[in-house]
Design a protein around this nucleic acid. Structure first.
Length: 312
DNA sequence: TGCGTATGTCAAT
DNA sequence: TTGACCTACGCAT
């Protein structure tokens, strides 16, 4: 699930349904029992996402910092308000809608098959549950889940590069460009470096590089300022689509039929990601797979040739 | 039942 | 550069 767009959606969900409410906080799994007791019964004051991290602010300068890692996920139950125009359109037109518990316990098939009971029984390894009178959020599998104070929040944020969804100013674009231009590191690694730009993951990396027709091995300092600005702007654009739709839709300008296809199935969604050995959608050359930074990198060797010029 | 894989990061080597 | 870690799922056996 989690590249930047999903974390922003989750932060928005908390803003809608939890901020301003007092939350009962528990750790059904037990591994976060102490932290849960620190914020149990406090009012949630704000919800922020920066890159792939989320910060939930509670009274008494208590902040819950969450990083989902590879497998982390939130499940929401009860009142789950639409968070974007797009989900409004699919849901019940602006009105909060009731979502039934999505996943039932595998073990007890007899019981909870009917409409929901609120709150639902925690299923699986729920690290932390936040519960208001009307809504429940269950977190499983995070790489980070801790209670910290505002000074520690500042430290965490300080390590992160700019995130256009959180700060869309020209200054943050400049920060990104400057950072990349000082480094000999391949651009394919820099886009994944959260201190260079926060929120891009393995899928968006591959897709952004293809959209820019840029060779992933190009050293950061050899990528022209103009091109870097274009990449930043493209990230602004794709991230916004991701936040609105909840999907990493990177092939814009599709026919309505192809657009529907892309939404329906992952295999029809990307330019290069997970398409190794398949013909490039633009030039027909087989898409390559290689390791970069111990992650899988997909790219088209023809369309993403090394730029001849190394100019600024 | 068990293996491999996944949109991530960090510490240790 | 490698290994460890968090969890769920799909697929093969």
């Amino acid at each position: 699930m989690p590249e930047g767009h999903s974390v922003h959606r989750i932060a928005l969900q908390f803003e809608r349904d939890f901020v301003g409410h007092t939350a009962a906080v528990s750790s059904p799994q037990g591994r976060f029992a102490e932290g849960a007791s620190e914020i149990d019964g406090l009012r949630m004051l704000s919800s922020h996402a920066i890159g792939k991290q989320m910060f939930l602010e509670f009274e008494n300068d208590k902040w819950l910092r969450i990083h989902l890692g590879l497998y982390g996920a939130w499940d929401f139950f009860g009142i789950v308000s639409p968070i974007t125009d797009e989900s409004d359109a699919r849901g019940s037109m602006g009105a909060p809608r009731l979502r039934r518990a999505l996943r039932m316990a595998e073990s007890e098939s007899a019981k909870s098959t009917d409409l929901e009971t609120f709150p639902p029984e925690p299923v699986g390894q729920v690290r932390v549950r936040l519960m208001t009178d009307e809504s429940v959020a269950d977190l499983r599998g995070p790489t980070t889940c801790e209670v910290i104070d505002s000074a520690q929040v500042a430290v965490a944020i300080d390590k992160l590069g700019p995130d256009p969804a959180e700060d869309a100013t020209r200054a943050s674009e400049d920060r990104f460009v400057k950072r990349v231009r000082t480094k000999p590191t391949p651009i394919g690694l820099l886009l994944m470096d959260q201190s260079v730009v926060a929120g891009i993951g393995n899928v968006y990396r591959a897709e952004l590089l293809f959209r820019a027709r840029l060779n992933p091995h190009t050293p950061g300092r050899n990528v022209s300022v103009k091109r870097l600005r274009a990449i930043w702007q493209d990230w602004v654009y794709l991230l916004d689509i991701g936040i609105r739709t909840g999907m990493m839709l990177t092939m814009d300008d599709l026919s309505p039929a192809d657009e529907a296809k892309a939404r329906r199935s992952r295999t029809d969604r990307y330019w290069v990601y997970k398409r190794e050995g398949l013909p490039c959608r633009v030039c027909g050359t087989n898409i390559l797979l290689e390791e970069m930074g111990s992650r899988k990198l997909y790219w088209c060797p023809k369309d993403q040739k090394t730029p001849r010029t190394v100019a600024s």
